[in-house]
Protein backbone atom coordinates (compact mmCIF):
# COMPACT_ATOMS: atom_id res chain seq x y z
CA UNK A 1 0.00 0.00 0.00
CA UNK A 2 1.24 3.53 -0.76
CA UNK A 3 1.27 6.12 1.97
CA UNK A 4 -0.98 9.08 1.38
CA UNK A 5 0.82 11.36 3.85
CA UNK A 6 3.19 12.98 1.36
CA UNK A 7 0.38 13.45 -1.15
CA UNK A 8 -1.63 15.62 1.19
CA UNK A 9 -2.02 18.49 -1.33
CA UNK A 10 -2.76 16.26 -4.27
CA UNK A 11 -6.35 15.08 -4.63
CA UNK A 12 -6.68 11.46 -3.64
CA UNK A 13 -8.87 8.67 -4.93
CA UNK A 14 -8.98 5.64 -2.64
CA UNK A 15 -9.65 2.23 -4.20
CA UNK A 16 -10.79 -0.51 -1.81
CA UNK A 17 -10.41 -3.81 -3.67
CA UNK A 18 -9.10 -7.14 -2.42
CA UNK A 19 -8.59 -8.87 -5.78
CA UNK A 20 -5.04 -8.02 -7.01
CA UNK A 21 -5.98 -8.66 -10.65
CA UNK A 22 -8.94 -6.30 -10.42
CA UNK A 23 -6.79 -3.76 -8.57
CA UNK A 24 -4.20 -3.78 -11.36
CA UNK A 25 -6.89 -3.36 -14.00
CA UNK A 26 -8.59 -0.43 -12.24
CA UNK A 27 -5.21 1.19 -11.63
CA UNK A 28 -4.44 0.86 -15.34
CA UNK A 29 -7.78 2.45 -16.29
CA UNK A 30 -7.28 5.18 -13.71
CA UNK A 31 -3.88 6.06 -15.16
CA UNK A 32 -5.40 6.18 -18.64
CA UNK A 33 -8.09 8.61 -17.43
CA UNK A 34 -5.28 11.18 -16.96
CA UNK A 35 -6.82 12.96 -13.99
CA UNK A 36 -4.50 14.97 -11.74
CA UNK A 37 -5.05 12.85 -8.69
CA UNK A 38 -3.28 9.98 -7.03
CA UNK A 39 -4.93 6.57 -6.74
CA UNK A 40 -4.21 4.70 -3.54
CA UNK A 41 -5.41 1.13 -3.17
CA UNK A 42 -6.05 -0.95 -0.07
CA UNK A 43 -7.44 -4.50 0.14
CA UNK A 44 -9.65 -4.21 3.25
CA UNK A 45 -12.21 -1.96 4.88
CA UNK A 46 -10.06 -1.82 8.02
CA UNK A 47 -7.22 -0.26 6.06
CA UNK A 48 -9.63 2.06 4.28
CA UNK A 49 -11.01 3.18 7.64
CA UNK A 50 -7.52 3.93 8.93
CA UNK A 51 -6.54 5.76 5.78
CA UNK A 52 -9.69 7.88 5.78
CA UNK A 53 -9.02 8.85 9.39
CA UNK A 54 -5.50 10.05 8.64
CA UNK A 55 -5.88 11.55 5.18
CA UNK A 56 -8.12 13.71 3.10
CA UNK A 57 -9.67 11.65 0.35
CA UNK A 58 -11.80 13.06 -2.46
CA UNK A 59 -13.32 9.90 -3.90
CA UNK A 60 -13.66 6.33 -2.60
CA UNK A 61 -14.06 3.52 -5.13
CA UNK A 62 -15.49 0.59 -3.22
CA UNK A 63 -15.63 -3.04 -4.21
CA UNK A 64 -18.77 -4.50 -2.65
CA UNK A 65 -17.56 -7.89 -1.46
CA UNK A 66 -14.51 -7.50 0.75
CA UNK A 67 -12.88 -9.85 3.26
CA UNK A 68 -14.03 -7.81 6.25
CA UNK A 69 -17.44 -6.62 5.09
CA UNK A 70 -19.64 -5.23 2.37
CA UNK A 71 -18.72 -2.09 0.49
CA UNK A 72 -22.36 -0.96 0.44
CA UNK A 73 -22.50 -1.12 4.25
CA UNK A 74 -19.20 0.73 4.55
CA UNK A 75 -20.67 3.41 2.27
CA UNK A 76 -23.53 3.80 4.75
CA UNK A 77 -21.00 4.00 7.60
CA UNK A 78 -18.86 6.76 6.08
CA UNK A 79 -21.71 8.70 4.53
CA UNK A 80 -22.86 9.82 7.97
CA UNK A 81 -20.25 12.54 8.17
CA UNK A 82 -18.99 15.11 5.75
CA UNK A 83 -16.71 12.92 3.77
CA UNK A 84 -15.51 11.91 0.35
CA UNK A 85 -17.69 11.10 -2.63
CA UNK A 86 -18.31 7.36 -2.89
CA UNK A 87 -18.79 5.02 -5.84
CA UNK A 88 -19.37 1.27 -5.69
CA UNK A 89 -17.79 -1.06 -8.22
CA UNK A 90 -19.37 -4.44 -8.60
CA UNK A 91 -19.43 -7.35 -10.97
CA UNK A 92 -22.85 -8.36 -9.69
CA UNK A 93 -24.85 -5.34 -8.50
CA UNK A 94 -28.01 -6.51 -6.77
CA UNK A 95 -31.20 -4.64 -5.84
CA UNK A 96 -30.10 -4.82 -2.16
CA UNK A 97 -26.85 -3.12 -3.02
CA UNK A 98 -28.59 -0.41 -5.02
CA UNK A 99 -30.94 0.24 -2.10
CA UNK A 100 -28.04 0.59 0.35
CA UNK A 101 -26.07 2.68 -2.14
CA UNK A 102 -29.02 5.03 -2.54
CA UNK A 103 -29.40 5.39 1.23
CA UNK A 104 -25.70 6.20 1.48
CA UNK A 105 -26.04 8.80 -1.28
CA UNK A 106 -23.31 7.26 -3.39
CA UNK A 107 -22.34 8.97 -6.59
CA UNK A 108 -22.75 5.88 -8.76
CA UNK A 109 -22.78 2.09 -8.87
CA UNK A 110 -20.59 0.92 -11.74
CA UNK A 111 -20.25 -2.54 -13.22
CA UNK A 112 -16.66 -3.73 -13.33
CA UNK A 113 -17.30 -5.54 -16.56
CA UNK A 114 -16.72 -3.03 -19.34
CA UNK A 115 -15.51 -0.30 -16.99
CA UNK A 116 -13.55 2.27 -18.99
CA UNK A 117 -11.00 5.02 -18.34
CA UNK A 118 -13.60 7.51 -19.59
CA UNK A 119 -16.15 6.36 -17.00
CA UNK A 120 -13.59 6.67 -14.20
CA UNK A 121 -12.53 10.10 -15.41
CA UNK A 122 -16.13 11.26 -15.62
CA UNK A 123 -16.78 9.88 -12.13
CA UNK A 124 -13.82 11.81 -10.77
CA UNK A 125 -15.07 15.02 -12.43
CA UNK A 126 -18.50 14.56 -10.82
CA UNK A 127 -16.87 13.96 -7.43
CA UNK A 128 -14.84 17.15 -7.80
CA UNK A 129 -17.88 19.14 -8.86
CA UNK A 130 -19.61 18.07 -5.60
Amino acid sequence: MSSAGHHSRIPVCLLVEDNPIERAQITRLWNRSERKAVLISVPTLAEARRLLKENQVNLVLLDNSLPDGLGAEFALEISNRKGPAIAILSEWPTPFMFAKAERAGVLDVLRKNGLSAEQLGHLWDRAQAG
Binding site: N19, I21, E22, Q25, N64, S65, E91, W92, K112, N113
Partner: peptide, 15 residues
Protein backbone atom coordinates in the same frame (compact mmCIF):
# COMPACT_ATOMS: atom_id res chain seq x y z
CA UNK B 1 -22.17 -17.90 -5.23
CA UNK B 2 -22.50 -15.69 -8.29
CA UNK B 3 -20.05 -13.18 -6.90
CA UNK B 4 -17.39 -15.88 -6.47
CA UNK B 5 -18.12 -17.38 -9.87
CA UNK B 6 -18.14 -14.04 -11.69
CA UNK B 7 -14.97 -12.88 -9.94
CA UNK B 8 -13.14 -15.99 -11.17
CA UNK B 9 -14.56 -15.55 -14.68
CA UNK B 10 -13.60 -11.89 -14.71
CA UNK B 11 -10.04 -12.66 -13.59
CA UNK B 12 -9.62 -15.05 -16.51
CA UNK B 13 -11.10 -12.47 -18.89
CA UNK B 14 -8.78 -9.72 -17.63
CA UNK B 15 -5.72 -11.96 -17.83
Amino acid sequence: FFHDLLTSARNVRLL
